[in-house]
Amino acid sequence: MSVAALAVLTQTGWKRWSAYRSAALAGAVTNTVFGLIKAAITMGAVGAAGGTLAGYGAIEGATYAWLAQALIAPVNVFWSNDLVDRIRSGDIAVDLSRPVDPQLAYLCADLGRAAFSLVPRGAPPLLVGALVTGLALPGQLLPYVLGMVSVVLAVVVSFACRWLVSLAAFWLIEMRGAATLYLMTSNILCGLVVPVHWFPGWMAAVAAATPFPSMLQAPIDVIMGRVTGVDALGVVGVQIAWAAGVLLAGRLVWTLGTRKLVVQGG
C-alpha cells in the first residue's frame, strides 16, 4: 500500500468521525462530568492516605484523573469497533475485495478517528480540570513531545488489542461475552479506574504482563513527567514492543480466520 493511500485512509477516519459533531459534544460533556467525580474520589483517596499515595499528591491524583478522562476517546478505551459487525454481517467480503491490507487500512482509519477526537474530546476535561482542581503538569516541552508519541502508541496498542479480540467473531457468533470480558479486564488494568501504581503487588504484576497499561498509564506517566529521560524512553519502548507484538498476533489470527471464513448472508 502506498503512503498516499494510507494518508487518505487516515484522513477518511477523521472525516467519518467529524461528521458527528453532536456525538463528540455529548461525549465531551460525559467525560468531563465523570472527570469531576473521579477527580474528587482520587483527591479523597490521596487525602485519606495521608497526603500522598504512591507518589501522587492531591493535585497529581486529580491531574491523573483528568488526563485519563481526556484520553478515553482518542485511545478508545471503551469498545467501539466496526470489525465485529462487519465479520458478523459478512460485509468483511467488501474489505477483502480491495487491494489493501485490512489491518493496516483499519489502523489508519483508527488513527484518523483518534486524531479527530483528541481536541474535541480531550480539551474539555482538561480545561475544566484546570479551573476546578488545577493540573500538576511539567513546565518543560519535552514531556509533551514524548507524550504525544506515547499517545499515538497508546492508540495503536488499543487498536491492536481490539482488532485481535474482534477476530474472535470469525469463530463465535455471539461476541457480547468476549467483549464484556475484554472491557472489564482492560479498563481496570489500563489504569482507568485508579493508577496502576496504586495496585497491590500481585495485581501490578498481572497488569505488567498485559498490554493494557501501555494504553493509558504509560502516556499519562510520560505527559505528567512521572517518568523522564531514559525511563520515559523505556516506557515508550515497552509500548512499541506491545504494539508490534499484538499487531503481529492480530495478523496471524486474521490469516487463520479468513482461511475458515464463512461469509454470513451470502
Binding site: 498516499a4 493511500a5 487518505v8 480491495r98
Partner: peptide
C-alpha cells in the same frame, strides 16, 4: 457516513 464523492477519492488512492 461521507458524501459519495469521498468514496471515489479513497478508492482512487487505494487503487493507486
Amino acid at each position: 457516513d461521507l458524501p459519495l464523492r469521498e468514496s471515489y477519492r479513497v478508492l482512487a488512492a487505494i487503487h493507486r
